[in-house]
Computed example of a mutant assay.
Amino acid sequence: MINRADVLAAEKRIKGYVRRTPLLRAGTDAAPLWLKCEFMQHTGVFKARGAFNRLLAARERGELNPAIGVVAASGGNAGLANAYAAAALGVPATVFVPEAAPRVKVERLLGYGATVHQVGAEYAEAYAAAIRYVEESGALFCHAYDQLEIAAGAGTVAEEILEDEPGVDTIIVAVGGGGLYAGVAAAAEGRARVVAAAEDRARVVAVEPFNIPTLNAALAAGHPVDVPVSGIAADSLGARRVGEIAFNMASRVPPTSVLVDDSAIASARSQLWSEYRIPAEYGAAAALSALTSGAYVPREGERIAVIVCGANTDASTLEYLPESDKQKASR
C-alpha cells in the first residue's frame, strides 16, 4: 500500500537525477490555476521519476545486474523513462512497445541505446512479451505504472506542487494505468496529516478518456476490470485495466472521477500549444480538458494545479482546431 512516506523516500533518492519542473501560473485571481510543467522532465514525461526510483532502489538492494539490466513494457513513455535512467546508470535496457507506438517515441528509445521490440496491437501484448523476456533473461522488470517504487517516484510531482504552492486545493491528473494518480493521491493524503483540518487536504481529480475508463470502471465494479482501448490518447493512457496500487489508493481516498471525450482532449491540447506553446501529447492534455470542457466545474476561488505530464508527440499535429473553430476561422 503506497503512502506519503514512500513518496518522500523517492524524493530523497532521485534528487539530482530528475528535474524540478516549473509550476506555471496560468489562471486569474478569481480562478487560480497553475500548470505543472512535467513535460519539461527528462525524456519529456513524468515517468523518469519512477524509473530512477525503481532502478536506484533496486541497485541499493543488489537486485540490479549491470550486465543484464532492465526490461519494460510501454506504450512508449515508460520505455523512454527506463531507457534513459538505465543509460544514466550504465546498464542496458530492453523495451517492448505495441506495433502502433508513435515513431517519435521508438526513435527516441533507440537514441537512448535501448533494444526495442514492437509486439502486438496494444500495451497488454507488449507487457506479456516483456514478462516472458524477464523470465528468460533475469532482467529487472520495471512496470509502466503498477509498482510501488514507480508510483512513489511519480508522486514527487505532487510534493513539488504543494511545496511551491501550499494553498493548492485540487490537483488534476490524467489516468491511464494509474501510477501517476496513485503517487499524487498518496502525497495529497499524507498532507492531510500535517494540516489543521481534513478539508485543507489537496483533493485529486482523476481524468480519463471515455474510450479508456480504467479507474472509473474499476470504481463502479468494485475491482479492476478490463476495458476496451481506443482513441487519440491510447498511446499514453492505453492500459487495459487500472493497476492494483491505483485502485487501492482510490478505494482508500476516493477521487473525483471525470471522463472526457477525444474532442475535448484535442481542443485542450490545441489550447496548451496556442496559448502557452506547450507541446503536450494527447494524454497529457486530458487533465486540462476536464476544465476546458466543463467536465469538472471548480468551486468559486478553488485553487487548481493541472499536471501536464508529457510532450512526446508529433509536433506537426499541434495546430489542431476543433470543427467549430475551423468554421469560425474560414468566415
Rank of each mutant, 00 (worst) to 15 (best):
G222L: 14
G222A: 13
P224S: 09
V225G: 12
P228M: 06
V229C: 10
V229R: 12
S230C: 12
G231L: 10
A233N: 07
A234P: 04
D235Q: 13
L237F: 07
R241T: 07
R241M: 13
G243L: 10
N248G: 15
S251T: 10
R252V: 02
R252A: 13
P255T: 00
T256L: 13
S257M: 03
S257F: 01
V258N: 04
V258H: 03
L259C: 06
D261Q: 09
D261R: 09
D262Y: 04
S263Y: 09
S263F: 05
A266T: 10
A268L: 08
Q271G: 02
L272N: 03
L272F: 01
R277I: 01
R277S: 10
I278G: 04
I278N: 01
P279N: 04
A280P: 02
E281T: 02
Y282W: 10
Y282M: 13
Y282R: 11
G283F: 00
A285N: 05
A287T: 03
L288E: 04
A290H: 02
L291F: 01
G294T: 07
Y296V: 00
Y296P: 00
Y296E: 05
V297I: 15
G301Q: 11
R303K: 14
I304G: 07
A305G: 09
V306T: 03
V306E: 08
I307P: 05
